[in-house]
């Protein structure tokens, strides 16, 4: 199988600085990888001999498991570290954690961290490949990529498509990665949410801004509905979850008023009855589970491409052991 190549550089920190060619290369690489997960024996030796650390400073189920499946299906050796049971809880700094991992001669780090910029920080300080699995409010690039892949699968294109991201844009790394990736691929992008949950200069991101969900539904062809973190209510950004649902919830009644059928995405985990009603989430235009399936393929593509950029993988490939 001849896989397309793309130079992503050493790391995948975000989509903001990627070109359309780089993003499309990842999506195109993900296509053949989808098939691996459909096999009876879901394993290929592409990353055999590679050591990957999944370093999660924040709780994660979906993203961590998705990365883990991607790694296992490419035959990498992976180790999971969560902050609660690691030396981080003993006061070790991020840079020391990274250097210690590096001293064990690992090849890649997949990191989730609560601080914006943490992935860049790590990438600047260790020679291993760094894949950002979410840094604070900044970016969650593999989520953005799997959203792009899912939209492309279902609509057939991204260029010129009208995509609206609904919810807590201010605190959302998913929103930022979607905005950057969609704009780079030529989509028209809008954001919608309570003004308390929109960045001050949202319009300067190059997106439309709606503060009423009805206007967003009227405008869009695709809705990406973000999870409303419960702590936003405690923080006073919205008065109550019930009010949020009544005013910004994506409901069948509201969708019925649209002039066309809208593709519905949600990065999960969903608060049914808050940002999205169950009949929408489970409805015929929802592609939420396709997103999850695509997540594994996209992450395989990212790991593969980053590994291909490393000189040592060339040696391994020569011996028939890997990419």
């Amino acid at each position: 199988m001849s896989l397309p190549t793309a130079s992503l550089g050493k790391d995948l920190v975000g989509l903001e600085d990627l070109s359309a060619e780089q993003i499309l290369a990842i999506l195109d690489t993900a296509e053949p990888f989808k098939e691996i997960s459909e096999r009876r024996i879901k394993k290929v030796p592409v990353l055999r001999g590679k050591t990957i650390v999944n370093l999660f400073f924040e709780a994660s189920t979906r993203t961590r498991i998705s990365f883990e499946f991607a790694e296992k299906r490419l035959s990498a050796d992976s180790v999971n570290i969560s902050a609660a049971v690691s030396s981080v809880s003993k006061g070790e700094t991020l840079v020391d954690t990274a250097r210690n991992l590096e001293a064990m001669r690992i090849d890649m780090v997949v990191m989730r961290h609560g601080a914006s910029g943490a992935a860049q920080f790590l990438a600047d300080r260790i020679p291993s490949n760094v894949v950002n699995a979410g840094d604070g409010r900044h970016e969650h690039p593999t989520q953005g990529l799997l959203d792009l892949l899912t939209i492309r699968d279902h609509v057939g294109k991204i260029d010129g498509l009208k995509v609206c991201i609904i919810g807590d844009i201010l605190h959302s790394r998913v929103a930022r990665s979607n905005i950057y990736g969609l704009l780079t691929l030529g989509a028209e992008v809008a954001v919608c949410g309570p003004p308390t949950l929109l960045p001050l200069c949202a319009d300067e991101f190059g997106v439309e801004v709606f503060t009423r969900v009805e206007e967003a539904i009227e405008w869009a062809e695709v809705l990406n509905v973000l999870r409303l973190q419960l702590e936003r209510m405690e923080g006073g950004y919205v008065p109550s979850l019930r009010e949020y649902n009544r005013i910004w919830g994506v409901t069948n009644e509201r969708l019925a008023a649209a002039k066309r059928d809208l593709l519905i995405l949600h990065p999960g985990p969903m608060n049914r009855g808050v940002e999205i009603d169950s009949d929408v989430a489970d409805g015929e235009h929802s592609v939420i589970l396709d997103q999850v399936t695509n997540g594994v393929a996209v992450r395989m593509a990212v790991l593969y491409l980053l590994a291909g950029g490393q000189p040592e993988s060339a040696e391994a490939a020569k011996q028939g052991h890997g990419a």
Partner: peptide, 15 residues
Amino acid sequence: NEGLISGRLGLSGKP
């Protein structure tokens, strides 16, 4: 500073 850069970097701002 709260503005476009803080928004893009995902850092909370001081207006």
